[in-house]
Design a protein around this nucleic acid. Structure first.
Lengths: 333, 333
DNA sequence: TTGTACGCGTTATCAC
DNA sequence: GTGATAACGCGTACAA
């Protein structure tokens, strides 16, 4: 059987109330009895029961985390960031995967709320605004990572996709490219649009025009990038550079280009988005706009904890990506 | 405020006991009152409080999962497998990362136990046998993934590393190689030894000998594989094929080989272990011995649930890997 | 400074 | 069939 404060009380010859107070270091208790009780608790191997505490105090010291899937290395790093700060602050993490299914995501959030998590972090939410009432009814703070909503109990941390897209395109332009394609993502939603907008803006400022056949779509994964690149290779004139929605897409694009006998970056420059480790596995290594992924997770968790502890906290944070120059981009030949 | 069974009781004009029974579909209650109560509960939006249930019933419906790090794609897939079955069975997953630190791992396991998880799954445990007494004292079933311990409350699911190593080496031999190196892992522990043993066995059976300078060590990650391969390239005579501890190591080895101007598989064949997606990102794509990663997670979770529900369950399960022939291996020139 | 009594939401026990 | 009542382990007014 597990040791409870009652057991300790009995052993110490005091009431369980006194034990409760002593163990949490209450000031209004005589130092010597406190020390004595703590010693006894230690000796008996006492561990407070978090379930009982939660029932009493309505705090479970647990954060719900919802992610579409872990096989996407992007989320992986985000979750690590969250876990680090949670672990350091004594919070547990209840992890659920939504597999990009909005209905599942909704069910999970409700389930987490039912499980009494203190707060929820959702990465890459697929939930539309029509679910906002539900979220608000939960009366649990929710931090969204890389998606936008506003409302009571809704917070967010995101990277500036417009800025990132601009960064990528501007870099290619600086290298001398004038024919720059974009491989987007069917599933990218708002972030796809924003990166595209940043790209368009950079081209516009440089006085470059975009041919419709240079804008194609993948699925945010390697296969989609490969297929998209194959279509792109048929375009005439062919672009000399490609900005890809994300690194996985770019890796697929790179594979297709190499397979078609192109030299990268000689015949074609490729730039990705995310800053994944995976971009260093390929040859040539992938130039990319890195998102501060771990930072996203860390900030989301810190934000949530601040809210839970009643400290002042911003409602929305926007982070900037940074260019990582590796080998897949160069001047056009 | 949240709706409780007492609220329902008041609304229905019965005792909370009756409500509790009705909602759980007890037989010993008049069908009409049961239906009436259920209707009221539904109308009031009642959600049972899992915390209260846990306090009363000593079951939290939560599984603790410990993993070294998520940035290793191997674990990622394992966790997905676990999560799938847990979610389907209504269990939550409390995730913690140990970062390969045995002391941290121990602390986490204790913390999870304190949090009253019903069972624990540990992937790639770094805990030595001297912690067994602690684990047993917890009196919580623990399923180890890819590591071996025996004792009460200890279960395991693992892939057969000896067999896998044999598979890899035998394949290279079948292709005609006679000079086959091994890049191990400093951090691989037992699994590194076992894969090495399988490799040795295959060579022995084929009457091949191994030069000491053909056995080098990485760290289980890309950088380590690169460094190890650079050392290997200085060996004289140079091996015509390399078996790598895992895919990340192999990807590093591949990079180093390509960078040294070797053709793969022409000048050098490379085979990995794990079957990661990442192996298809590189050019040439990586031949490998695949571990059934998701299966490992699934089985571990199913095993744990069986144990928790008192159904008969094997104590240890050993799975076999399978060869995936891709492009990085061929006959020696 | 310490103890009594009660509540958190649920299930189990034992009456009626 | 249904209802009091206690119990799970802890925290907290309130009393002493």
């Amino acid at each position: 059987m597990r040791v409870t404060i009652k057991d300790i009380a009995r052993a110490a010859g005091v009431s369980h109330t006194t034990v409760s107070r002593a163990l949490r270091g209450s000031e209004e208790i005589r130092p010597e009895t406190r020390a004595r009780i703590q010693a006894i608790a230690e000796a008996m191997g006492y561990r407070p029961n978090p379930v009982a505490r939660a029932l009493q105090g309505r705090r479970t010291q647990t954060l719900g985390v919802v992610v579409t899937r872990l096989s996407d290395p992007f989320h992986t790093e985000v979750v690590q960031g969250i876990e680090m700060v949670a672990q350091a602050r004594g919070y547990g993490i209840l992890l659920s995967l939504s597999h990009e299914d909005p209905e599942k995501e909704r069910a999970i959030v409700e389930l987490l709320a039912a499980k009494q998590v203190d707060g929820i972090i959702v990465a890459a939410s697929r939930l539309g605004s029509r679910y906002l009432p539900m979220l608000e009814a939960l009366r649990i703070p929710i931090v969204l990572i890389n998606s936008h909503q506003t409302g009571p109990y809704i917070y967010s941390v995101a990277t500036d996709n417009v800025h990132g897209g601009y960064l990528a395109a501007a870099y290619l332009i600086r290298l001398g490219h004038r024919a720059i394609a974009y491989i987007g993502s069917r599933r990218g939603g708002r972030s796809n649009q924003d990166r595209y907008r940043g790209y368009r803006q950079a081209l516009r400022e440089a006085g470059l025009s975009v041919r419709p056949e240079w804008i194609v779509k993948g699925d945010g994964r390697v296969e989609g990038g490969e297929a998209a690149m194959r279509r792109l290779l048929e375009a005439d004139p062919r672009p000399t550079a490609v900005f890809c929605y994300n690194d996985l897409t770019a890796i697929g694009a790179l594979k297709a280009a190499l397979r078609a006998g192109l030299r990268v970056p000689g015949d074609l420059s490729i730039i990705g988005f995310d800053g994944l480790e995976e971009g260093t596995y390929v040859t040539p290594t992938l130039t990319t706009v890195a998102q501060p992924r771990r930072q996203l997770g860390r900030l989301a968790a810190e934000m949530l904890l601040e809210i839970l502890e009643g400290r002042p906290s911003p409602k929305h944070i926007l982070l900037q990506g940074t260019l990582i120059e590796r080998e897949s981009c160069g001047p056009p030949l």
